[in-house]
Design a protein around this nucleic acid. Structure first.
Lengths: 239, 239
DNA sequence: ATTAGTTTTGGTCAATGTGACTTTAACTAA
DNA sequence: TTAGTTAAAGTCACATTGACCAAAACTAAT
């Protein structure tokens, strides 16, 4: 059960060396569509500046350093590449196929994150960091297309069952804003009246006395989310 | 994204060396309870023969070798420690806390598996490999208690939503057997009539013309499961 | 000032699913 | 032949959901 490495740094050792370990993150944010102005799902990608896949777009990521937990590594990574602090962060999956990278064996532990639009608007964007619509990312480096697809599947799942949508929004929000989140992620229209009934019946949603003023129509009431995210091992003891 | 190691094997390098990577597996099987004879959930554990945690029970596991995928490593591991071939195998979580192991930094990618009772009956059992009831494992090595708890939570979740129960059973089964699986895993009684209505309404369950003979009472009809497991990345393209 | 247009909010109705319960069928063992 | 047990089918009240309707509350245009 315990590996003992031979002392000589020869080819045989290098060949049987343990796979290297990397952390990557799929970061989701809602941004207004260019056309309709309604919110749509976007993710930031970084351009590869080295081989392999030099020039292609890839998920932000990097090695796991010795002194940080997996979640901290994902957080730091997110901060370094986009300048963003996530409002939600959860482990997605460990990808460890043999031929993910042509040069060496790499195991990537991938996280997915949600950031709020106020943050996302401030996000660094440059020659080498650009936001893409989540459903139109083109051909990515490594197996990152499969990873993005899986992350999207998980996000949709969590949205449909868990109470995740509020991490896309600020502290106060209208029910129409929540509905826009659902419509953007699930990519279909929802009946406003039925949606209202469902959301208001969940105990984690609190009605405030405030209303959002300045709109063109009847001022909607503001709500607040009082729940907590987590059930995966990293977030379990969070009170 | 590409790590380059310095050549000198000194202390500084060892300290900043990447965490080592291990694979562990939580293996579930149903075995008849000593008392009631009704099926209950069991998992096999192995005794630590080295420090740290020498003498304590731990999940079966080992290093990831260079030439095998994560899932293959979990499969091999399972085969080596218990002699079992799983009927279901899925990634659980990557555990990477800083102080999981007192001696060195270890990241464990943990899988969970279901094995059929025919297999489980043949399973190797020895001084250093023993089966425990899943809810009475005692104090385990490392963070393995938390891992077992989380695996149990996932199993119960998958059972309640997905169609996972049939992997505990053989090709043909009665509805009462399926119900026993649910009752053992969820640890509560279910109404036979209502349970029947639910199971028979799922399209993946096929009624056969056969009946189970030899019982003490009215012979129950045999059913067959026609669905496929998976939705996580490793199992996606399985037809 | 009035009206048209839009969104918010509250409501009805039919269809569906679920838990609690009853009843009949089919078999074994006494 | 009868008692006991499980299998299987059905009934009923209740909750949830999707489709739809209508009033309330506001702005912008006339």
């Amino acid at each position: 059960m315990v590996i003992v490495y031979t002392s000589a740094a020869n080819v045989a050792e290098r060949r049987s060396a343990p796979p290297s370990l990397a952390i990557s993150t799929v970061i989701f944010a809602l941004r207004p569509s260019e056309k309709s102005g309604r919110p749509t799902l976007w993710i930031p990608l970084v351009r590869r500046i080295r081989e392999p896949y030099k020039g292609l777009w890839a998920l932000p990521g990097g090695p796991l350093t010795h002194a940080e937990s997996l979640q901290d590594a994902a957080s730091r990574n997110l901060q370094e590449t986009t300048g963003l602090a996530p409002s939600y962060l959860e482990q997605l999956y460990a990808f460890g196929g043999l031929h993910r990278s042509p040069s060496q064996r790499v195991v990537s532990i991938v996280y997915w994150a949600l950031v709020q639009p106020t943050e996302a608007a401030l996000a660094d964007e440059s020659e080498n960091v650009t936001w893409f619509r989540a459903d139109r990312v083109g051909d990515l480096a490594f197996d990152h297309n499969a990873i993005v697809d899986y992350a999207l599947w998980r996000l949709r799942n969590k949205l449909a069952y868990g109470s995740i949508a509020y991490h896309f929004l600020g502290e106060y929000f209208t029910l129409a804003q929540v509905r826009e989140v659902y419509e953007a992620v699930l990519d279909r229209q929802l009946d406003p009246a039925n949606f209202r009934r469902q959301i208001t019946s969940t105990p984690e949603i609190e009605e405030t006395g405030e209303y959002l003023q300045g709109g063109k129509h009847r001022p909607p009431r503001l709500y607040r989310f009082t729940g907590r995210p987590g059930l995966d091992p990293d977030n379990r003891s969070t009170p």
